[in-house]
Amino acid sequence: MKGIADITVALKKNSRPFVSVFGFVFAVCALSVAQAPPQVHLDAEGLAPRPIEELTGTTIARHYALAWRDLAGALDSNNARGLGEEFVGFAKDRLAKRIAQQSQSGLHVRIVDHGHQLKALFYSTDGASMQLVDHAQLEIQTYDGSKLIDTQNTPHEYMILMTPGADRWYVRDLEEVSAKP
């Protein structure tokens, strides 16, 4: 993903100032669209042993979406710096390890995210953990350098553990399981 700086540098080649200004605005808009978190729909119907509070549900959906945005960005850029905002524990450690190895191997992964159907399975009575399953529509493209070596465009299913922090819910565990088509 190109940064704003890269795009603006490219725009500087254009001699017409108004075109540059327009181009910069366009670049910012394009990037903001590119960095927008994916659609996440949370279904918490019949959640046990504790029902979910409305605010908690909203927070979880928002931060899960942000987690996927950060994850996609990190796997594409091979930069694990942004993961700590939304990931913690096993999930963060695994992703950081993967990104380091991706970077070492010259691979990167681009995710085209078509949205997530999140279903809450378990919410502990103390409110300290929530287990969810995610039916995600993802197009996962694996590159070796600039060469596309694999494209996956199948449904994916993830088992997720989320735990609350001071101001957000973190993804603590994210494991892909065999998706039921």
Binding site: R98, Q101, Q102, Q104, S105, L107, T142, D144, I149, L174
Partner: peptide, 13 residues
């Protein structure tokens, strides 16, 4: 050939 293994926390090339 080049073999790649892409896993949740492990990449092989």
């Amino acid at each position: 050939a080049t073999f790649y293994l892409v896993g949740p926390d492990h990449i092989v090339k």
